[in-house]
Design a protein around this nucleic acid. Structure first.
Length: 156
DNA sequence: GCCAACGTTGGC
DNA sequence: GCCAACGTTGGC
């Protein structure tokens, strides 16, 4: 099993909304590297850290799970969608997505500030300056540490 | 195929 | 709301 992190602006789509909806198609990813991770490497059952960006505070808000592997993102063909891509053809769609299901909402956000303090997380693209990747792989040790930080916060 | 201009991301 | 850093586009 692999671990991942996806970013979302909570005003757009938050962990609480995922909790309410239970599952969602992870549509709207329009970056090739992020697409490739979804298309080629995200497998059913993989666990996904759900990160709130542009938030107060920004940080990891919970966990989701891959519930359906790569398939074409329908929004690329929807003329009125923000994610419409006129260059993409139905016979050979440019953009792929996975489906995510809700697993857990952390009692408190594990803030970016806290993640940055962790020496062992310094290799994560998330904490690197200038990285805007919205879907990224996470190492098992990184995943476990973030989970531990989420639990530590609960006790405080 | 270079690279300037542009649009977007996302922390602050 | 600002703006640095980045990815993409398009003229040449």
């Amino acid at each position: 099993m692999n671990y991942w992190l996806v970013k979302s602006e909570p005003e757009e789509f938050s962990i609480s909304l995922l909790k309410k909806k239970r599952t969602t198609g992870w549509e709207g990813v329009r970056n090739y590297l992020a697409r490739n991770y979804m298309r080629d490497f995200m497998k059913n059952g993989d666990l996904v850290l759900f990160y709130h960006s542009n938030a107060e505070p920004s940080g990891v808000a919970g966990i989701a799970r891959v519930s359906q592997e790569s398939h074409p993102d329908p929004s690329q063909f929807e003329r009125h969608s923000d994610y419409y891509d006129p260059k993409s053809k139905r016979e050979s769609p440019t953009w792929m997505m996975v489906e995510l299901e809700f697993v857990e909402e952390f009692p408190a956000i594990v803030a970016l500030e806290v993640l940055k303090e962790q020496k062992s997380l310094e290799d994560m693209p998330l904490v690197k300056k200038g990285t805007r990747l919205s879907v990224m792989p996470v190492k098992p040790a990184e995943f476990e540490l973030i989970l531990k930080l989420a639990k530590a916060k609960t006790k405080a």
